[in-house]
Design a protein around this nucleic acid. Structure first.
Lengths: 240, 240
DNA sequence: ACCTGAACACCGTTCAAGT
DNA sequence: ACCTGAACACCGTTCAAGT
């Protein structure tokens, strides 16, 4: 009865389908995940999957929640800032473990239950920390995708490792986009291939922006900021 | 000679292909844009497109640059903050005109020339405004996707307009995700379907976060911040 | 030399035929 | 009643055959 070919498989279940999908996406990439390839991985016929997930979109929804479930619950004995920071960095670690997850989260048309639960807990932390509903609302928007521990990178990737190609690439960059080149060269001025263009420290950049925002949040909270005064040009003066 | 069927078409060109692709994506959505549907739109056989774009990825690259070309050049007679703000909001307007563009930018594996040119001009504005190369670097990362005028939204979409379904949805939300519900209800306390859950003012939220970051940037610039001091836990004290 | 239709190797999903 | 193989309506792209 049931599936029992090859290596004596347990019967299919929604959970087993989702876990296999996560493993497959981790190993082979998102573009290699199809209903057909996943079925083959599980040793079943493609249509058997449709007993456990309505369609591919719902499969992806389930995969997102599986990743979100890896986020550690916050230690709630600290101040709001420490707790939020911990939550966000834990989310970031979960998403770094599954590089495809960011792309899948971005393409969901509506948030999954796991995603809502995570959001709710972060909102609750702000509220408990003395943020008004109003300020909490805007602050959550300001965090944006950073609540998930990611930001899409828009910077060019580091130059090629081959010294000759690298020097040529940097020279071209300097000619066409001088200001970007200056950053890639980090003000050192040397075009020496061995020391420059070492790429960016993603973790540092993430925490830099996160802390800048958290600092701003704390300032607004302390001064009792409210959006009630919002009108023409008012927002410019918010931090003054 | 050339294509001259039906309504007497001009000969194909890379530019005509790209413009048709943008129009098609605007009208029918990104998922309706295929090499086949685009060819049909242009009254040619699918393979004819491959004379002007190497493959679909390159077609999408070209479409991104077509949208980026709509960003207005900054008025450079103002202070850095006004110029950057203007650039970013102009980029935002261009992307709002082509709702598919955000998704396409996010999936590009490397930045296109138009994208690099936009980045370069923003970097140049910071530099001219007295930012060090070092600070400019981190500040660009902190802006992240906001340089493009967008942030992915992670908040749930507004509740359904039908009063009865709306009340039910809100009641469920309150039970499961009380903190999110509080924000949706905006602290008013009333569950009256007509006044609550009016959704978010995207433009306000965008500018709120943008100005918070710009305020932070100005503070760091004024105090001569440098990443040189970065080490264990140092980043937390950046705004102090 | 140029163009292009048929074909290839895929998709997600429907549906009717088989047990 | 249950399961599933074949089929449908698509993809992007290759390639050889036709002019």
């Amino acid at each position: 009865m049931a599936q029992r070919d090859g290596a004596g498989r347990a019967p299919l279940s929604r959970d087993r389908v989702l876990r296999a999908a996560v493993v497959l996406a981790d190993r082979a990439g998102l573009e290699a995940l199809s209903m057909r390839s996943l079925a083959q991985e599980l040793g079943v016929v493609p249509m058997a999957l449709y007993k456990h997930v309505a369609n591919k979109e719902q499969l992806l929804d389930g995969m997102v929640d599986a990743v979100v479930a890896e986020i550690e619950p916050p230690a709630d004995d600290a101040d709001w800032r420490t707790v939020v920071r911990g939550c966000v960095l834990s989310a970031r670690r979960a998403l770094l473990r599954h590089p495809w997850a960011v792309r899948v989260i971005e393409t969901r048309s509506s948030p999954t239950p796991g995603v809502l639960a995570h959001l709710d807990s972060v909102v609750g932390t702000f509220r408990a920390g003395g943020f008004s509903v109003d300020l909490t609302h805007h602050v959550m928007h300001a965090l944006g995708s950073r609540v998930w521990g990611f930001t899409q990178e828009v910077f060019p990737s580091p130059p090629p490792p081959d010294p000759e190609a690298r020097t040529a690439a940097l020279r071209e960059l300097s000619g066409r986009y001088p200001h970007i080149a200056e950053i890639v060269l980090r003000g050192g001025g040397h075009e020496d291939a061995s020391v420059v263009g070492r790429g960016c420290d993603d973790q540092f950049e993430f925490e830099f922006a996160l802390d800048l925002l958290l600092d701003g949040f704390e300032r607004l909270r302390a001064q009792g900021w409210s959006s009630a005064a919002r009108s023409a040009g008012e927002s410019r003066a918010q931090g003054a």
